[in-house]
Design a protein around this nucleic acid. Structure first.
Lengths: 255, 255
DNA sequence: TAGTGGTCTAGACCACCTC
DNA sequence: AGGTGGTCTAGACCACTAC
């Protein structure tokens, strides 16, 4: 038709209005039929334009209500300060952080025995298909799904530390429980990537279109070998990870 | 209509086939008209289902060719080992890493003077609107756009180190150039987030629908204050960042 | 030339929300 | 009841790719 398709013209115009702050006072966009008249386009064409903005994460829609500009509120997660022996793992750092931010945390928890996937096997240095223990956490902040955390332990470790495979919390924290068995975590390897959620992830995290997930894989090591692999998924629009490296005395001075 | 809309049935069926490996030998999907017949749905409905998979990053389409399952090849980026005094910054680590992976790097480069945005001002601890120097890199791997890197320096530093504001490379690397002027980087603060690309980012990185960008902000500090802020954008499907923390002798043993 | 996806329309019916 | 978005159809024409 034209060098620029009509639905893109619609999307570009609305995107411009959004970034210019037109909807800051009231986030509600005009209805499809209004936009249809304004751009002299069919309802389907307007919908194509709006859908583009939805997949960009700029707006969202709900039946009977209309389209709204999305608002963000970012939660900061310090990954380098996260764990050490004096600071129990297994959700406690998370609870502490969330409570400190004036929000209300809660989580569901389960334990499973699973054969290692190619991904976890490579990181735990065990054979693919060998038994691993999965301790799985589904975390919420103010009842909004926030993240899932899956920690896999190699089979040899579950034998040396049988409470890992038992359902229910380990009161003193898994890190301390393991340390008491002379298995101390002395280093981590963190991997971070981003992609669009699978349908399963969309369900668990209640993610709508246009929001990526961040994947954070932390492999923990003793002085001789890997002892756990934790895969955390976050909503990309609600979280930002950070790492502190080196001497940051210059950061705190006038903060 | 039914509990599950028809276009979702189409998407779910094809997603299932993809994850089951049906298209591993040949990544080409059936044409829209074939799918239309198979699912007894109009072409538009089939297109809605396919579009869902596109926005999930699973498939891509090109006019005249058809739909294809997307393939990934992930590039690992070590962020904790990235820079130090004996290892020049400004793209050299990138060139080294890329060349080591048997790929061919190249980059374009420009320098600008810009007023600080709220984001950079907060990190550099300068007033919003005050002058900063931007050194901007657009990087390619085998001629595929890979990342953009924007480093902002505070005005006071540009006065102390005037070559920062001059166009063209700094041969010995900016880190060393600054160190020679008694401005030494002793720590970093890294922030990582993910979102869908802006149209500008889609253009620079040639990102198609369904691929998020990763944003990596590194603020570098001297022993007294921030001296730079580097914002890097990556294609989320092609990159994975990692950090090494603590003692990782247990990692290298049988790798 | 034939087949592919890309754009666009007009109209239908449904589900949800508010009044 | 009336307005909102959600789903679906049938058909048209265009642009690109292959042969």
């Amino acid at each position: 038709m034209s060098p620029q398709p009509k639905y893109r013209v619609v999307a570009d115009a609305l995107r411009r209005e959004i970034t210019d702050g037109k909807y800051e006072s009231s986030p509600r966009l005009p209805s499809e039929s209004e936009l249809s008249a304004r751009f002299d386009a069919s309802r389907n064409t307007v919908r194509a334009g709006l859908n583009l903005l939805v997949t960009e994460g700029l707006i969202s829609s709900s039946q009977g209500l209309g389209y709204e500009v999305r608002s963000h509120e970012v939660f900061e997660l310090n990954a380098s300060r996260f764990e050490n022996l004096s600071f129990p793992q297994n959700g406690d750092a998370y609870s502490t952080d969330v409570t400190a931010a004036g929000r209300r945390p809660h989580q569901t928890f389960r334990v499973e025995m699973l054969p290692a996937t190619a991904y976890t096997a490579a990181r735990l240095k065990v054979d693919a298909g060998s038994t691993t223990v999965l301790r799985f956490c589904h975390r919420f902040v103010d009842d909004v799904p926030w993240s899932t955390q899956a920690t896999y332990y190699p089979g040899w470790l579950a034998e040396a530390a049988p409470r890992l495979a038992e359902p229910g919390d380990i009161a003193e924290g898994t890190t301390r429980y393991l340390a008491d068995r002379e298995i101390e975590q002395v280093g981590y390897f963190d991997e971070i990537s981003a992609r669009m959620p699978t349908p399963e992830e969309s369900r668990l995290l209640e993610i709508s279109a246009g929001v990526p997930v961040m994947l954070w894989t932390r492999t923990g090591y003793s002085d001789t070998r890997p002892i756990r692999c934790t895969i955390t998924t976050f909503r990309g629009d609600l979280n930002r990870m950070n790492y502190e490296i080196g001497d940051l005395s210059g950061r705190d001075e006038t903060l």
